[in-house]
Design a protein around this nucleic acid. Sequence first.
DNA 1: GTCTATAAGGCGATAGAC
DNA 2: GTCTATCGCCTTATAGAC
Lengths: 188, 188
Amino acid sequence: MKTQSVREQLLEHTLVLIRRRGFNGFSYRDLAELVGVKTSSIHYYFPAKEDLVQEAVKEYSARLAERIRSIDTSLPVTEQAAIYLAPFRASCGSDQICLCGMLSTETLCLPESVHKMLQGFFLLNEQWLAGLLERAQPHRSTPFPVPPARLAQVVFGSLQSGLIAARLFGTSDRVEAAADTLMAAVAG
Amino acid sequence: MKTQSVREQLLEHTLVLIRRRGFNGFSYRDLAELVGVKTSSIHYYFPAKEDLVQEAVKEYSARLAERIRSIDTSLPVTEQAAIYLAPFRASCGSDQICLCGMLSTETLCLPESVHKMLQGFFLLNEQWLAGLLERAQPHRSTPFPVPPARLAQVVFGSLQSGLIAARLFGTSDRVEAAADTLMAAVAG
DNA sequence: GTCTATAAGGCGATAGAC
DNA sequence: GTCTATCGCCTTATAGAC
């Protein structure tokens, strides 16, 4: 474990708090106690709570963008899909869902600047999945029942709600159902 | 518009508030101002906020259960699907998502009794959809790529997240993608 | 049943010492 | 940078008059 600056620690714990309880579900006091500083120190780095959530989304999105970017598109499509699915499966046992999936339910409580970043996160995932399905299409015996771009939205949406349901039910069934749907689509 | 008791008005406005902003996103003050009473009057009907959310989930679930129960299973399967999908499409233009979809993201902030009811809501939908798919199966030219019960989970999950995305993006695209997937599955 | 009044504490945020 | 101290407001909840 590398040594982190106070700012890095604040951001890291914020990611966890949002993924657990959402923007409206944690306070500066909660965060301060986790890091071991006073709430006024948080305001030094993040003047308002909106600044904090904005930086959290930026950081979370950047990590996922890098992860997706690093998937070698010349690999077998089933292997690409498996790499994409890994973080969803990993988060299943934890009590954390996707940060952007959580914040997207709190749209009406968040500033426009955050909406834009959440939309970008959704589109990045959907477009990458659509690309994967298109790369898989030539190898399929039958055409898709719905166009790749729409199937991508269905797969991503069911993965997101699968994470939410995993925490509610204590089972990864619904994430696996979404994963199976993707695998069946790319395997043809 | 029928005359409602104060209790009924409180419950009705609570449904809207939760569907808009979630359990952590509204206060007794918000609710009191909407109904035109003082916050202490809310406590007369619902002693604690947990009682309020519990009654809200109970009411919302009862309405959906009645709606699903009333779908004539001897109708053509595509017609049954269209009836099931109608409320999802209706909620698309509004700023309200599914109450149980919203609360399921706040699992860690809610009591066990509410978890049970949310699970029941999910299972009711998934099981009805699975039954629909099974009724459609004999008419299909090819078997399902994934079993009906899993496809039902995928469809329901993508409808739920489709509502969330509809509010974030201002478009019903993702709900329609989920609806198309269901229709393609039952139409074979 | 509904109100006034209030308790007891949480909230985000700021000023200013060090 | 981090702290102490504090502001002004909001929160859920209760006691008791009417």
